[in-house]
Structures are given as C-alpha cells and as structure tokens.
Amino acid sequence: MVLQLSSQEIAERTSAVVEELAQLEGPLLPILHAVQHEFGFVPAGALPVIAEGLNLSRAEVHGVMSFYHDFRETPAGRHVVKVCRAEACQSMGGDALAERMRERLGVDWHGTTADGNVTLEPVFCLGLCACAPAAMVDGRLVGRVDEARVEALLAEVGA
C-alpha cells in the first residue's frame, strides 16, 4: 500500500531535511539520501524544495538524482533484492542467475512485482567477489548464489 502524501506534507518534510543538512560540505547527496529515507523514495515534489534550499536549479538536482541508481522516484516493494552485475559475479554465472530472477519475478531491473512485494535492482559490486555470484536481500548480503539459492531467496521474500 502506497501512502498518499500531500504536496504540502512533502514540502514541509523535505524542508526540514534540507534545513538540517544544508550546512554540510556537498550537501546534495546526503539530502537526497535523507529524503529517500524519510519517504522510501524521492518524491518529485521534493526536488524543487531541495533546489531552492541549496540555490541550485531543478535540473541540477534531478540530474544528480537520476544519475545514481540508488535513488527511487517511486516506492520500492516490501522487499528489495539486489543482484550483483559486476565482472566477478558475471564470470561465475551471475548473468544466468540474474535472468532467472527476472523471469521468476516477471519484472525487469528496477521493477516491482504487481503485488508490490519485491523490487529487483542491479548493483555493480557488492564487495563479495570471492563468494560470487552475490546478491543482497533487504540489506543482507548473500554469497555463492546458485539456482537452489535463487529459489530459496525468492521464497523468503514471498515470490
């Protein structure tokens, strides 16, 4: 269930985040992370508030937000599964496992299942290269992912 937020509530909560973090050196990324933490995503209505608070253009803020794949424009599913797409994981069969997850969930990268349960995201290195292929489920690292582990992980998140 997605909470319906008024534009005023988005503006007020975003303003509070900007006010708290604007004095940092290079505050844009910390502010975007804090806003995403606050709402679960970065609402479009937050961008002009951030831009004004930092004396940046909306295009600059949007450009930074859209450049980094960790920022979402819409809420994620109840569970987030990240699959490593880096070379070490690819060399250990990660491409086939990633494709299997996409097929089983019926979504593409950055997609969320129709029931809102699982969001699938690519990530370019989880730092678990010695245990490739790797994934992350709701912030928990999982190494040596094989076909059986894919099924277990998807069952764990209710897919």
Rank of each mutant, 00 (worst) to 15 (best):
residue 1 M to C: 14
residue 1 M to H: 15
residue 2 V to K: 13
residue 5 L to T: 12
residue 8 Q to G: 03
residue 10 I to E: 02
residue 10 I to L: 07
residue 14 T to S: 14
residue 16 A to H: 08
residue 18 V to H: 11
residue 20 E to P: 06
residue 24 L to R: 15
residue 26 G to V: 01
residue 26 G to M: 08
residue 29 L to A: 11
residue 30 P to Y: 10
residue 33 H to Y: 10
residue 34 A to Y: 00
residue 34 A to D: 11
residue 34 A to L: 10
residue 38 E to Y: 00
residue 38 E to N: 04
residue 40 G to W: 05
residue 43 P to I: 12
residue 43 P to F: 02
residue 44 A to V: 01
residue 46 A to I: 14
residue 51 A to Y: 09
residue 53 G to Q: 14
residue 54 L to D: 03
residue 55 N to Q: 14
residue 56 L to Y: 09
residue 56 L to G: 00
residue 62 H to E: 14
residue 64 V to C: 04
residue 64 V to M: 05
residue 70 D to H: 08
residue 72 R to T: 05
residue 72 R to V: 00
residue 73 E to V: 08
residue 75 P to M: 03
residue 75 P to C: 00
residue 76 A to C: 10
residue 77 G to W: 01
residue 78 R to L: 12
residue 81 V to K: 02
residue 86 A to V: 00
residue 86 A to Q: 12
residue 90 Q to H: 07
residue 90 Q to T: 06
residue 91 S to A: 05
residue 100 R to S: 12
residue 102 R to H: 10
residue 102 R to S: 15
residue 103 E to V: 10
residue 105 L to V: 04
residue 106 G to H: 02
residue 107 V to E: 02
residue 111 G to S: 07
residue 112 T to M: 05
residue 112 T to K: 07
residue 113 T to M: 04
residue 114 A to L: 11
residue 116 G to V: 06
residue 117 N to Y: 03
residue 118 V to C: 03
residue 119 T to W: 11
residue 119 T to A: 11
residue 119 T to F: 06
residue 129 C to M: 12
residue 130 A to L: 07
residue 130 A to M: 13
residue 135 A to V: 03
residue 137 V to N: 04
residue 138 D to A: 07
residue 139 G to E: 11
residue 139 G to C: 10
residue 140 R to V: 14
residue 141 L to Y: 09
residue 141 L to I: 06
residue 142 V to M: 02
residue 143 G to C: 06
residue 144 R to M: 12
residue 145 V to Y: 10
residue 146 D to R: 07
residue 147 E to Q: 14
residue 148 A to F: 03
residue 149 R to T: 08
residue 151 E to P: 05
residue 152 A to D: 15
residue 154 L to A: 06
residue 158 G to D: 15
residue 159 A to H: 07
residue 159 A to V: 06
